[in-house]
Amino acid sequence: MSKRRVFDINFPDEAPGVRSPSVPAGTETRRGPMAAAISENADALRERQLAETSIREENDRLAHELVRLKKLGLIVDLVPLDAIRCSKLARDRSSERDPELDELKESIRSVGLSNPIRVEQSEAGEYELIQGFRRLAAYRELLSETGDERFATIPAGLLARGETLDTLYRRMVDENMVRRDISFAEMATLAQAYMADPQTEATDVDQAISTLFGSAGRQKRVYIRNFVSLLDRMGDNLAYPHAMPRALGLALLKLTEKDEGAAVALQRHLGSRPDRSEEEELAILRSFAERGGEAAASHKLATSRSLTKARAKTTLRVVHDGEVVRCLATDGRVELRLERDFSAVDRRRLEQAVQAFIGALEG
Rank of each mutant, 00 (worst) to 15 (best):
residue 212 L to N: 05
residue 33 P to F: 07
residue 266 L to F: 01
residue 204 D to F: 00
residue 247 A to W: 01
residue 294 E to C: 00
residue 18 V to I: 06
residue 90 A to C: 09
residue 173 V to S: 06
residue 173 V to T: 08
residue 289 A to Q: 03
residue 200 T to P: 00
residue 146 T to K: 08
residue 236 D to E: 08
residue 238 L to C: 10
residue 201 E to A: 07
residue 130 I to A: 02
residue 319 V to K: 14
residue 224 I to P: 07
residue 335 E to I: 13
residue 33 P to H: 01
residue 190 L to V: 06
residue 148 D to H: 09
residue 101 L to G: 02
residue 269 H to C: 12
residue 326 R to N: 10
residue 139 Y to P: 00
residue 308 T to R: 15
residue 61 R to M: 03
residue 62 L to V: 10
residue 319 V to D: 12
residue 269 H to W: 10
residue 125 G to T: 00
residue 165 L to I: 14
residue 103 E to N: 08
residue 292 G to Y: 07
residue 335 E to K: 12
residue 104 L to G: 05
residue 263 A to I: 06
residue 152 A to W: 06
residue 191 A to Y: 04
residue 289 A to H: 02
residue 204 D to A: 06
residue 28 E to S: 08
residue 11 F to H: 11
residue 138 A to L: 04
residue 327 C to F: 05
residue 119 V to Q: 09
residue 47 E to G: 08
residue 192 Q to R: 15
residue 329 A to I: 14
residue 263 A to L: 02
residue 151 F to L: 09
residue 98 D to T: 09
residue 208 A to S: 14
residue 325 V to G: 11
residue 130 I to V: 15
residue 121 Q to S: 07
residue 212 L to A: 09
residue 246 R to W: 04
residue 106 E to L: 00
residue 354 V to W: 08
residue 54 S to Q: 11
residue 266 L to K: 01
residue 47 E to T: 07
residue 63 A to L: 09
residue 56 R to H: 03
residue 187 M to P: 02
residue 48 R to K: 13
residue 249 G to D: 04
residue 169 Y to Q: 07
residue 179 R to N: 14
residue 129 L to R: 12
residue 82 D to P: 03
residue 91 R to K: 10
residue 359 G to T: 10
residue 232 D to I: 04
residue 320 H to D: 13
residue 275 D to N: 15
residue 221 R to I: 00
residue 31 R to N: 10
residue 233 R to C: 08
residue 218 R to I: 13
residue 124 A to Y: 00
residue 153 T to H: 10
residue 46 R to M: 06
residue 342 F to P: 01
residue 66 L to S: 03
residue 317 R to E: 15
residue 35 A to H: 12
residue 196 A to M: 10
residue 129 L to S: 04
residue 101 L to I: 15
residue 361 L to F: 11
residue 127 Y to F: 15
residue 6 V to S: 04
residue 214 G to P: 05
residue 253 L to M: 02
residue 250 L to Y: 03
residue 283 A to D: 14
residue 336 L to I: 07
residue 161 R to N: 10
residue 266 L to W: 01
residue 190 L to F: 04
residue 204 D to G: 06
residue 152 A to T: 02
residue 250 L to P: 00
residue 97 R to W: 03
residue 275 D to M: 09
residue 180 R to Y: 02
residue 47 E to W: 01
residue 197 D to Y: 02
residue 264 V to I: 05
residue 74 L to F: 07
residue 70 K to I: 05
residue 69 L to A: 11
residue 255 L to I: 05
residue 62 L to C: 01
residue 98 D to R: 03
residue 158 L to V: 11
residue 84 I to A: 07
residue 298 S to E: 12
residue 346 D to I: 02
residue 363 G to W: 04
residue 354 V to K: 06
residue 259 D to S: 15
residue 191 A to D: 06
residue 89 L to M: 09
residue 184 F to Q: 02
residue 118 R to L: 15
residue 95 S to V: 09
residue 297 A to I: 13
residue 7 F to D: 05
residue 200 T to R: 09
residue 49 Q to F: 12
residue 20 S to N: 15
residue 235 G to L: 00
residue 152 A to K: 06
residue 23 V to W: 10
residue 61 R to Y: 12
residue 95 S to Q: 08
residue 81 L to F: 07
residue 62 L to E: 12
residue 139 Y to M: 15
residue 93 R to Q: 13
residue 14 E to Y: 10
residue 144 S to F: 03
residue 39 S to I: 10
residue 134 R to D: 14
residue 163 E to K: 04
residue 74 L to I: 01
residue 311 R to I: 03
residue 203 T to W: 03
residue 198 P to Q: 04
residue 297 A to T: 12
residue 156 A to M: 04
